[in-house]
């Protein structure tokens, strides 16, 4: 583990006790994520990718192993507001304008009014929503709402961005567009991003590192360091390298499924 390690998980396990017996959401998961990485977690439902992300965010508590975020426990990292979390649904408050929604975490964290205004302007420009500050969520399309929720997660300058299938509910055209924007954003802000998805092209297109996971018990089956260049236009998806990585991800997913498919 180097000083640049943002997330370090070692033999992490999480078992839910249910009426049908224990469910191993995560078992023996070890992974290091370096500063500036764009890491995608991909796998079928029940593979523990969201659970792993929630462990990083201190929303779930591992039952075994260790995990550190920025070198401290997830709880300390959460208290230090070390990460921004983007959920699958935008989850904007209908009674607050777009600006008001982005102001919400800033109010909670006690930023001054002037600082709030400045940051709202900055992050709205960053997600290409400048001028929408006074609009209300219902006046925006689904893709724009999700961009606003990303802006909200960026507003308080956390270096780590945790995204749980943020574009899962959007159609493919919007999703392509947002993926492109997300890469630009990652490039300009130098943040570390953990991104949960179940779309292979999305994972390959976005990531510097692809973590393939499989269920029962939730575990990592493959970690792929992407050889793709930093600059990624959308048509990179037609190159042989891209297709090769996609194959490897698909193979990893198939292997993980074992004989029960």
């Amino acid at each position: 583990m180097t000083t640049n390690t943002v997330i370090s998980a070692n033999d992490l396990s999480l078992t839910f006790e249910t009426n049908d017996g224990p469910v191993h959401a995560l078992k023996g998961v070890s992974l290091n994520i370096e500063k500036g990485d764009f890491v995608s977690f991909i796998g079928p439902s029940g593979c523990g990718k969201t659970t792993f992300l929630r462990c990083m965010a201190d929303l779930e508590h591992p039952t075994g192993g260790t995990i550190t975020v920025n070198g401290v426990s997830p709880q300390e990292a959460r208290r230090a507001r070390a990460y921004g979390y983007v959920f699958q649904a935008a989850g904007l408050y209908p009674w607050r304008s777009i600006g008001g929604n982005i102001r919400l975490p800033l109010e909670i964290m006690g930023y001054s009014k002037a600082e709030q205004d400045r940051r709202i302007k900055d992050v709205l420009a960053l997600v290409d929503l400048a001028g929408f500050e006074q609009k209300f969520p219902w006046q925006l399309s689904g893709g724009m709402q999700q961009r606003a929720s990303i802006a909200r997660a960026l507003a308080f300058d956390a270096d780590l961005l945790l995204m749980d299938e943020p574009f899962g509910a959007l159609d493919e055209i919007v999703r392509d567009h947002l993926n492109e924007q997300l890469l630009q954003l990652w490039d300009s802000t130098h943040k570390t991003i953990c991104f949960v998805t179940h779309s292979i092209p999305e994972a390959v297109y976005l990531s510097t590192k692809i973590v393939v996971m499989s269920p029962r018990p939730g575990r990592i089956t493959d970690v792929i360091e992407s050889p793709l260049p930093h600059e990624r236009p959308l048509d990179i998806r037609d190159t042989p390298e891209f297709i090769e990585i996609s194959h490897r991800v698909r193979d990893g997913l198939r292997a993980g499924h074992g004989d029960d498919v």
Partner: peptide
């Protein structure tokens, strides 16, 4: 999800009440 979101911002119970639960 909304309560988790408040948690990720490390909001106090009072803040969660005034900004989320009451509205």
């Amino acid at each position: 999800m909304q309560l988790d979101q408040m948690r990720t911002w490390n909001a106090t119970p009072t803040q969660t009440f005034w900004k989320l639960r009451l509205p």
